[in-house]
């Protein structure tokens, strides 16, 4: 089982993500954004949180045009798994691998706190470890977490059961309280809250470990 964690200038959750994957049993390789290939036999690619390229132009915009992103797209087209967390979610939206956009929080403020999330679907390799209808507490730390998409996309997300996590109460203005969404093939997850910061007892929160353990179970079967 192998995970690759992409690293951009300004990534700051890359080591947390590495640790979360490793705790779940993955071998992890860190991959610099200027590389053009992923390591062989990678099961999942993690796009970490942070402030890649200083959030210049738009959050995630420059990172989404990095050399490594070509390899990420190929990995996803071939049915590989990927997870983008916080800035990583912004990057996945900017690449077009997930639909919609993340805008400035409705209340303008940067939000940094632990929030309760509804696990909106358990039908994915990321969320099948959670009980149906359960909640999970992950930290959020973002300024641009206000998820918006066209009516058409929102309808598709709902009807195709692709909303993975919802905020229990509206914190940033996101449409339908969306905190995380899945790709059409359900193998790409993007979310603003940080499961990797809630995946070790040392950090006080462990709900995120369920997600990484579920991924490890899938990778072990592959």
């Amino acid at each position: 089982m192998k995970a690759a964690v992409l690293v951009f200038p300004g990534s700051n959750c890359d080591r947390d993500l590495e640790r979360a994957f490793r705790n779940a049993g993955f071998k992890v390789e860190m991959v610099w954004h200027k590389d053009t290939e992923l390591p062989a036999d990678v099961d999942i690619v993690g796009v970490p949180g942070g402030f890649s390229f200083g959030d210049y132009l738009r959050s995630g915009a420059i990172a989404a045009r990095s050399p490594i992103v070509g390899a990420l797209k190929t990995h996803v087209e071939n049915g590989g798994h990927a997870i983008g967390i916080c800035n990583g979610f912004q990057v996945l939206l900017e690449t077009g691998l997930l639909p919609g956009a993340l805008m400035r929080n409705a209340g303008i403020r940067f939000i940094c706190k632990s929030v309760e999330l509804e696990v909106a679907t358990t039908s994915s390799d990321f969320t099948n470890g959670y009980a149906h209808g359960s909640t999970a507490t992950f930290p959020v730390a973002h300024h641009d977490g206000n998820y918006q998409a066209t009516e058409e996309i929102r309808t598709a997300l709902l009807s195709e059961d692709r909303i993975a996590f919802r905020y229990r109460s509206d914190i940033n203005g996101s449409a339908d309280r969306i905190a995380g969404i899945l790709s059409k093939n359900r193998r790409v997850l993007g979310l603003m809250p940080h499961p990797e910061r809630a995946a070790d007892p040392v950090l006080g929160l462990t709900d995120g470990a369920v997600l990484f353990n579920a991924l490890a179970a899938v990778a072990a079967d592959a």
């Binding site: 738009r58 915009a61 045009r65 919609g100 956009a101 918006q148």
Partner: peptide
């Protein structure tokens, strides 16, 4: 189209 604007929004 390629970079300067996010044509979604």
């Amino acid at each position: 189209e390629a970079l300067l604007a996010n044509t979604v929004i």
